[in-house]
Amino acid sequence: MSSRGLWADVRLRAAWARQDWAAILREYRRAAGLSQRDLEPLVGLPQPHISAIESGRRRITSAELMARITEGLQVPDELTGIPARPALDEWSPAAELRDRIAHGHRTGRVDLRTADWIGRVLAEHRRAEDEVGGRALWPVVRSQLDSVTQLLPAAAGPQPTG
């Protein structure tokens, strides 16, 4: 049975709804017919840790670990509340703007049109991260925003309209 098909299992879905990580691991293994060792590569945890979680001797509190397990067990988007991810092409800049960005990185200067575009893309990314709960990515987005802000004073050209 595919991982997606496993998530039709009522006991597994109930464990997910309770966010009972011990039960999620146990019920996933039961539905898939896996041992704790078989689960290791899926969730990136050694068997003794899986055993400790399932027995209640260890709790999962790390958002990073929750995300890793969620991804490893291929929890469907409708259960996670995360909207389907857009295709990467939707986030890619046009060839002309990629060239402008590369030029900006080489020279440390950009024109106002490029700087405006970069700012808008970063704002869109930040809104998307807000929607999917990407707090862990905020330092990266913040760094990108800081980079754009540093380029703006040296930007040349007419002010963008609209």
Score class of each variant (00 low, 15 high):
Ala128Arg: 15
Gly133Ala: 10
Ala123Val: 10
Thr114Asn: 03
Arg135Ala: 14
Gly119Thr: 14
Pro139Val: 02
Arg126Gln: 13
Gly133Asn: 03
His125Trp: 14
Leu122Tyr: 06
Ile118Trp: 11
Leu122His: 11
Val141Phe: 05
Thr114Glu: 00
Arg135Ser: 12
Asp111Val: 02
Asp130Trp: 10
Val132Gly: 01
Gly134Phe: 08
Thr107Leu: 05
His105Cys: 11
His105Leu: 13
Val121Pro: 00
Val140Trp: 07
Gly119Gln: 09
Val140His: 03
Trp117Thr: 13
Ala128Glu: 08
Gly133Pro: 07
Leu122Gln: 04
Val132Ala: 10
Gly119Trp: 06
Arg126Ser: 14
Glu131Trp: 14
Val121Phe: 00
Gly134Met: 08
Ala123Arg: 11
Arg135Thr: 11
Thr114Tyr: 00
Gly108Glu: 04
Arg127Asn: 07
Thr107Arg: 04
Thr107Tyr: 00
Arg120Gly: 11
Trp138Asp: 09
Gly104Ser: 04
Ile118Arg: 08
Trp138Leu: 07
Arg135Tyr: 10
Glu129Tyr: 13
Ala102Leu: 01
Val140Cys: 00
Glu129Val: 07
Val132Ile: 13
Ala102Gly: 02
Glu131Gly: 07
Arg120Ala: 14
Arg113Tyr: 05
Val110Leu: 10
Trp138Cys: 02
Gly119Tyr: 05
Arg120Val: 09
Glu124Gly: 14
His125Ser: 12
Asp116Ile: 04
Arg106Tyr: 00
Ala102Asn: 01
Ile118Val: 15
Glu131Leu: 15
